[in-house]
Structure formats: C-alpha cells, structure tokens
Write a protein that binds this DNA or RNA. Sequence first.
DNA 1: CATAACCTTGACGTAGAAGTAAAGTCTCGG
DNA 2: CCGAGACTTTACTTCTACGTCAAGGTTATG
Lengths: 154, 154
Amino acid sequence: MSQSTEAYLQIGEVAERTGVTQRTLRFYEEKGLLRQPSRMDGGFRLYSEDDVTRVAHIRRLQNLLGLTLAEIKEMVEAEEMLQEIKAQYRPEADVSEKRRQLQEAIGVVTRQHGIVSQKAEQMSEMKEQMEERLRTFERWMTELEQMERKAPVA
Amino acid sequence: MSQSTEAYLQIGEVAERTGVTQRTLRFYEEKGLLRQPSRMDGGFRLYSEDDVTRVAHIRRLQNLLGLTLAEIKEMVEAEEMLQEIKAQYRPEADVSEKRRQLQEAIGVVTRQHGIVSQKAEQMSEMKEQMEERLRTFERWMTELEQMERKAPVA
DNA sequence: CATAACCTTGACGTAGAAGTAAAGTCTCGG
DNA sequence: CCGAGACTTTACTTCTACGTCAAGGTTATG
C-alpha cells in the first residue's frame, strides 16, 4: 500500500534530500547502518522513501545524542527488528517467539529512552543556568544605565 | 577571597579530579581551551580551582551538546570575557565601555541559550516519540498475552 | 645526594567519520 | 546509437581528539 509501484530514488536524489553526501550514504551502507539498497541492472543503487527516513533518523541520533555510528548501528538494528515484528505481526508465527521479540524490542527502546531522558534533563539544567546568567547580566545592565544617568559622559 | 593564598594543583591532580588525562589537559591548552597555567620554577604546570571547573564545563559542552573543540573554544572565550567583566565590574573603568562589553556578553549567552533550547526541544520530541512507541509495544504485548491465554502452547 | 615519583616537550600513531580523486560503467534524451 | 551526466568501485587523504612512547628535567623525601 505504501510503496506499491515504485518511487525509487537514486543516490544523488537521496543525498540531496537528506543533506548528506553520496559518499556518506555509501559509507553508512558499508558500516551496516543502511540496508543494501536494491540496484538497477547496471548496478545503480535504488533507495526507498524508508531509506530517506532512516538517514534522517541516523543524523538525529548523531547530532542530538552524539552517538557514534557503532552505537547508532545497534539502535538501527533494533529498529529493524521492530519493523520485522510489525511485518510479522499478522502472519502466523510462533506466538511465544513473537513475545520474545517484543520483549527485546521493549528493552531496546526503554534503554534508548533512558539515555534521551537523562540528556534532556541535563540539558534543561544547562538551559536554566543560562537563563539565570542572563537575568544577572540584565540586572547589571540596568544598574549601569542608572549610573550613566546620574553621571553622564564627561 | 576565593584563591587568596594558594591551593594550586599539578597536572596529575587535575587529571584525576576531572577524569581526563594529562595529555588531554595539555591538548586543551594547546588548542586555547584552557589558559596557559602558571608554572613552578622548574616548569611544572600549576592549575587553579577555576581551571578544574573549566574542564568540567568543556566536557559538558562536548558530551551534552556534542560541540567540537573549536566551537567550545568560542564559547569558552566568551566566558573568559564574562569573567573579565565580573572582575572589572567594581574598578573604575569607562562606563560606556563596560556597557559595550556587557552587551556583548549578553549576546553570547543568548546565542548559547538558543542552541541549548533548540536541542532541548528536539530532545523532548524524541523522548515523546519513544514513549509513544513504548505504549504501542506494550499494547501489543498485552494483546499477545491474551492470545496466549485463549490458545495456549500447543 | 640519590632516587622514586612526577613532570616536560616532541614526535608519531590511531579510531572515527568522512572527503577527494581516478578510472571506468550506466542511463537516458535527442 | 551516442554523448553528457549520473553512477560504480578502489584507493588514498584529511580532520578531530586524543593515545602512546621516548628521552630527559624537576621535586620531594630519606
């Protein structure tokens, strides 16, 4: 239903849309962060919309959380598993196996959530410190201005 | 009033207290992230408590915000200026000059605050996404458990 | 004053994350 | 069917943020 017919993208387009270079896309593939994309007969890579989303996700994990690609790989593999679970959710499969997978998925996301929560909190702390500072400076500023009014420029 | 007499630290102690290596301390100095510390007659570096604080700050900027040392250097230089302003606050100096400095300081901190705010916000978004996900999984899990109760292991 | 523990500079090495160049292959519009 | 532009792999280079010696100088202590 989603990518039924086509909508395949070549590496150049993906690069443009994600803001990373082609080199980076190939690099991520090499490192196992992106699945091997399908190929045209001549060997040109063909990416899906999902891949685009994935790249965006990788970048967020990099920039926001400062994770290494190795760490991100783990996360991404976990996500992969989730996709699988989603896909398998309907089809008949060993129920207890699915339970196990789900259990693991929950574990992964919980850990991720822990990291994010912690960072978010520290971030808020920093933010408040800065606001405190700003208030101080602005207080000083008004004091300075009052001094100037009392004793104007010589 | 704070570090009146002494309380100077050698590089080894600073390393231990900050959790970075001596190499890293020298490296930060080289890169202009730490001021040139005073030295003993023989050339041994002597750090102040302030330097310790500074290193901690640098590390937070690195780990939390994921900034490069170059970016951190800018921030740190700005902080340096703030220290200066604080120090000069009482002594007689051109008032309008002080105004200018304060103005700039406010600008710096405002920019920093902007970065942190933005990151903090994105972080919260991520956090919520993860929570949403977790809820989904847990819903699935209970569904699965119900299926198991109805049709137990063959 | 010997010597262990600590420090100095200098130079080279490394892991992570790509950038860049070379030489050849594909695709597609005209 | 052909040429411009997009793509391929391979290989070497770069940049950041340190790590790791090496060879020697300094300091504190017995």
